[in-house]
Design a protein around this nucleic acid. Sequence first.
DNA 1: GAGGCCAACTTGTTCAGACAAGTTCTCCGC
DNA 2: GCGGAGAACTTGTCTGAACAAGTTGGCCTC
Lengths: 246, 246
Amino acid sequence: MTARHEEIADELRKAIDREEYTVGSRLPAETDLAAQYGVSRGTVRQAVAALTAEGLIGSRQGARRVVLASRRSQSFAELRSFAEWARAMEREATGHVVEQEYRPATAEDAVRLQLPEKTPVLHVLRVRGLDGEPVLLERTVYADWISPAVEAIEPDCPSVTQRLYDDTGLVFAYGEHVIDAVAAGAQDAELLGIRRTSPLLRVRRVTTTREGRPVEWSDDRYRSDAVSFSVHNSIGNNALARKTAE
Amino acid sequence: MTARHEEIADELRKAIDREEYTVGSRLPAETDLAAQYGVSRGTVRQAVAALTAEGLIGSRQGARRVVLASRRSQSFAELRSFAEWARAMEREATGHVVEQEYRPATAEDAVRLQLPEKTPVLHVLRVRGLDGEPVLLERTVYADWISPAVEAIEPDCPSVTQRLYDDTGLVFAYGEHVIDAVAAGAQDAELLGIRRTSPLLRVRRVTTTREGRPVEWSDDRYRSDAVSFSVHNSIGNNALARKTAE
DNA sequence: GAGGCCAACTTGTTCAGACAAGTTCTCCGC
DNA sequence: GCGGAGAACTTGTCTGAACAAGTTGGCCTC
């Protein structure tokens, strides 16, 4: 039972993918699309707004919408879950836990997870790979209320996100990602199979539930020769921001 | 004459900033806000949709909206323009051109800028700094039709974006950013005043006009001790995507 | 006191109509 | 052929209404 505007957005995406509407060409006018799909103009507007936010089409008042690109970016599901991402690329996700222990929450843990200081929180260090080759080191801290469920997961589970959803119904809904570059330390280098001081792409992120409650925060380090990130921005949709240190 | 829904979004942002609505608290219901501002519910929905996209508030059907964060991310203007960004932080943007020359477009240039191969395109290498300290190296290629306007700009102009707008009315409307990490090469190290092999945050981006016409593409390298990027994501708004190499 | 059920509340979706503001194209005059 | 004025078209904004779907809190029972 998906909403009609989502169905229409999906059909438009597929039509663009099929090159029914080629890059550079113009989309039919809203009123035409509305008639074609048998819905009101407002519903069509919701559909095309989604494609605009994804960067697939461009929009200017007065002129017909233009197709800008043909490949859409990933779904949030693919970003949240390493395993989902691997599956979308038809590669095999691997992973295993290197270290796992409870520690009292530091001041930083307490702020990020909105918990009292010294609450015992679960620290997990995981190595994750694509087709057996390690590409990512995850140092994650889980909030106390989800830690038992995380502890119960076997060490080489390929998809922690999926397991937590199956076991507890938990859905990761929002995420804040801070991206920078660091040189690989001794432990990083050994676990990822690279030389020390190699550049790594670091993503520090906090994930929260739909209610806005923080679940985990993590320091993820990617081999920069294997993985990169891409962000699409436009006027009126600015997800990416530059920040200065400290 | 800004749209009413933008005004309302702005007032809500300010109210959150003033902690009139604190983080974790609930926003008034749509109908209450509509009555308060004397507009229809649809207009309020447009306003809160903007804040949701920015990650300021969370939204779930049936429950009142929750304030998730208090600091909003930057405007697209600040991301597009180094000078705008510096000004928003109340720091001084500096910059100067190190090299500038026309070269025939390579196959890559031609694809990215949607030009015929071998068209002469303008390559510019700029160093940019905050309060005099260099933080960014920009290697930019401009499309042939904008190159003359770029060439006319003095070498130490602090805001190229602003100058191009003033001179030609050009507006940067869309951008695709690919982020990864690289080790500083000899030239990078010398111009940024760091050691060779230091990790740098690299952003390769293409900027286009409102019509979807590519204007420039650039390889930007940031000192990772000075600058980082942040992205806010949520279900239904996934600007960030992971990519594998090549 | 604990648990379950229901009513009130709130957001999500959709419709139909109206006007404003910007673009595109055609036709006309020079 | 060229340029300008204007008509036709298209997206942006806003309204008011209705129902669907999900959440919350209170009341009632055990």
